[in-house]
Design a protein around this nucleic acid. Sequence first.
DNA 1: ATATTATGATAGTAATACTATTATTTTTGC
DNA 2: GCAAAAATAATAGTATTACTATCATAATAT
Lengths: 245, 245
Amino acid sequence: MIVILLFLQFLISKSSIMDRLMQSIKMDINEKLYVKDPESSTLGKKIVEQGILLIYEIGFECFTFKKLGTKIGSNESSIYRYFENKHKMLLYLASWYWGWTEYKLVFATHSISDSKEKLNKAVEILAQTVKEDKSFTHVNEVLLNKIVISEYSKSYLTKEVDNENKEGYFTIYKRLVDRLSEMIAAVDPKYPYPLSLASMVMEGTLHQFFLKEHFPALTNCNDKVTPAEYFVDLIFRTLKTKPNG
Amino acid sequence: MIVILLFLQFLISKSSIMDRLMQSIKMDINEKLYVKDPESSTLGKKIVEQGILLIYEIGFECFTFKKLGTKIGSNESSIYRYFENKHKMLLYLASWYWGWTEYKLVFATHSISDSKEKLNKAVEILAQTVKEDKSFTHVNEVLLNKIVISEYSKSYLTKEVDNENKEGYFTIYKRLVDRLSEMIAAVDPKYPYPLSLASMVMEGTLHQFFLKEHFPALTNCNDKVTPAEYFVDLIFRTLKTKPNG
DNA sequence: ATATTATGATAGTAATACTATTATTTTTGC
DNA sequence: GCAAAAATAATAGTATTACTATCATAATAT
């Protein structure tokens, strides 16, 4: 009996509820990032789905709408009716990713009242490896996570950042940094750099994953030590406290 | 009398010796990064000098050898005789920058025996704002620093990283991370993540400078709080000790 | 003074990053 | 079931990029 109950609980916590929730969610992405909402048609979803695969395969630099057109058996010009250019498409995909991450974060932390436990959970969510693709949607989150690791910086390291920031293209990401910053401040209201610590964790996580893959000599993260462990440890050392203590 | 002595000491520490040393230094940059050594001719130096200005002005994406040719009144094809392509040129400039930083780091820390003081100094050097251009060379370090902040990530976030890493294009940067990591380990040999902490500081510094400029709402660094202060504080909190104590 | 080397000028190619126009499907509303 | 509307595909065209190749000329070294 208890075995069955535990198994049920496992199912609920690990999969069902969360997954169903995620499937019914429509990401709230800045409308200026697309010409026509890719969620509104089959072709649009195909563009996003196969776009993710192609960017993952050949990298953002080599990725072109022409190649994507060939891959999906569609015309280049049709893709231009959904996205102005590949930069906007990257911003769109990034917003999708951070929106998805935000849902996971909010879902996993909202019911936690203890501020340390909450922060601990938040960092685990933000720095966790996206392992399985449980989605029934057209978005492969595992690959999208890898794209974000390798390409996200390129979306803001441009001469147009300030304008694009004003247009609200980075809103979701900024809100995530802010949420994390608030959780840090809740644990230690006297810590003077909650924003910098939060933005550093967000960006540093992607970087540590990248190093683990391409510069293993520059990180202590590996098969046994996850970026999440490193950052949880870092945060609680910095705030001179322990996750639970 | 004491005033004069103090003034002399100020001059030596702040400027003369260091500057002269730097001017006579030839950066030890991987030879595969250029076709012909730009240090070996007037045109080569001009390409580097004006290249830095142009990349700073229009950003790496918009930067082309044709535009640089026009700027220096030289032919596009002549630039190709120095660098294979703009990506290699970026790697070259980055190597120059990290080589220069390494000199500053080694010079400023080698005589410090106290490990905490040494680490403190190292972080200050790595995270310091490059304010003045004291150089008599063709390289404008202030602008190069800004280029590194905005463009360095693009030099390794590519599909070719692993090959280029094998070719040794990132050697100097890696050595810097290693040096910092060693200094961290010297202060706290039991700290389990010295490499991750070091690589995070190196990368995080650039990121905090970028945020300060373009996303001030995501950082506590500003006119009064420098990234150096934030990172020194972070490191010594993490290692559960103080810079001098 | 001449051979060598460096630089400049010109031309050319394939690919990129689009825009515009027209044709053909597909969808939908009645 | 049909016409109108909307979506997609096909084609063509432009300016720019990222080169390569060749040849001419200028600078320098012996």
